[in-house]
Amino acid sequence: MSSRFLIYLFLISSFSGFAQTKLIKTLKEEDKIESSYHLYPSTLRMINLQNDPAFDELIRPVKKLSFSILKPDVYTSKDMHTAYQELLNEGYEEYIEVVNDSASMFVVGNESKSRTCILVNNDEEYYIADLEGMINVLKLGEVYESIANQDTSKIGLGTVFNYVMGENNEKRERAKRRKEREKNGEKEAKKESFQVTIGEEDNEKKDTTSEQVDSLNAIEEKKENE
């Protein structure tokens, strides 16, 4: 899935909204969320750098949009399917489902609670988007066209999205480097303790040999004297 598609997904995947679902609470408790971003009407309007009137119209009924990136090393495809089932058990209904061999997206909503939750898996990366309120679906086409026809790095939403993804990638890189350092540190420590052991063994060997030489010399001296 291209970043352009993900940006669009970021927009369309929610048609009504949510506050904080039980699912998000559980994920926080289980420490499976890598980072979360919360956007309110004011912040959403701020990212409309082009002052596109269609975008303003699209987000007018939005109360809050939250976007969570999940930890890829602890969150799996199985977790996503379990989460999807749990949402359905919570009273959410299926809106949209897109599945292929490397990516999938599930959009579920609870009309009475005015909440929507979107679960996305894109090449083993997992995202959850949550929206409280609604979006003006009639403006989707216009906004999509503006995203499709522009360089995403130059539009406000694209900038925010690229920043979020960039920051997340940096975080992952930092965690990876830290793990490598820890691993290397452990290796070094093991190596040092191994050398110390060998050194001790050598000293013991040296002591044994010198004792043996001394005793041989003593025997020879005794023989000569006799």
């Binding site: 048609f15 009504s16 209904e93 299926e94 809106y95 949209i96 489902e97 897109v98 909503g109 609604m134």
Partner: peptide, 11 residues
Amino acid sequence: KVNVSSKMFSL
């Protein structure tokens, strides 16, 4: 596979 449910349209 893409599936858009009736619930979606009822919105």
